[in-house]
Amino acid sequence: MIYDLIIIGAGPAGITAAIYAARKKMNFILISRDIGGQTAWSGDIENYTGYQFVSGPELVAKFEEHLRKFEINLKENEAVTELSKSGNIIKVKTGQAQYQAKALIIASGKRSRELNIPGEKEYKNLGLTYCATCDGPLFQGKDVAVIGGGNSALDAALQLVKICSRVNIINISPELTGDPVMIDTLKESPNATVFNSSAVKRINGDKFVKAIEIDFQGKPMTLAVSGIFVEIGLIPNSDFASLVKRNEAGEIMVDARNNTSVEGIFSAGDVTDVPEKQIIIAAGEGSKALLSAFRYLISHKF
């Protein structure tokens, strides 16, 4: 079976592309590890037009409800491992199967960057997590550390101050770099402490996390915590996409019409080099990519 189109990823970009594709009655499949992507892990969202306030999981539920209005051929829980193209046909290999299509949209998003320090691998899910939204509630009444100083770290910290007894923010920069509104809210939280110019050295514990060793402005220091939330930025899920041109950060390079360096392969959302990574931008890029793919298929009369 050769599909018109394969969409990789079901975050805001991939879901939007799928909704447009379904409305155009294209013969396509949607392959994704999960539904919602990073949006699903987001806390409070207050800048998605039409929603003055919505949580990440709620917005994803709305996305999914919209998606499932259509009969979608969804391959969930599948990760793409390899892309290739022979003639006009694009082949997509996953851990489970191989699919073929005339056009492809890569909307595989980004994932959490890891610390790469001793103890990180050993204590993953044993107190160390990359998702405050998911695992935060398990640390009720406990002392925790959030690693990072940008918006996602502040978002995590603001969720945690409501339930944890103490939240230590370990920030490698001299100042927090997130939105001023969030920084102000955090400063008003009596149980939050910010450690600026601080690097994380090691995670210690027994069966579970017990402490974190940091370098606080040149001085070694140990903080007793039972939870560690890593929020130090993101890396693109583009390892499988060596077929298309990527920039130094690993982002897939696209033009204003979402074309990649390979004809018939389009890309959208956070995995691309589009300036600014926002849910609303990813959704818009997803619709642009689909319209470009649609035009490509029509003009080539495949």
Binding site: D34, I35, G36, A40, W41, S55, G56, P57, V60, A61, C131, T133, C134, D135, G136, P137, L138, Q140, G141
Partner: peptide, 30 residues
């Protein structure tokens, strides 16, 4: 927990397969 996306998906999966389960919210039950 009520906020974790994979929890929502796993429960959806069970419901889709018409499988009954006991749902425990660990965020409200230490």
């Amino acid at each position: 927990t009520t906020t974790c996306p994979y929890c929502i998906r796993v429960k959806q999966f069970l419901r889709d397969n018409k499988i009954a389960y006991k749902d425990i919210d660990v965020s409200s039950d230490q």
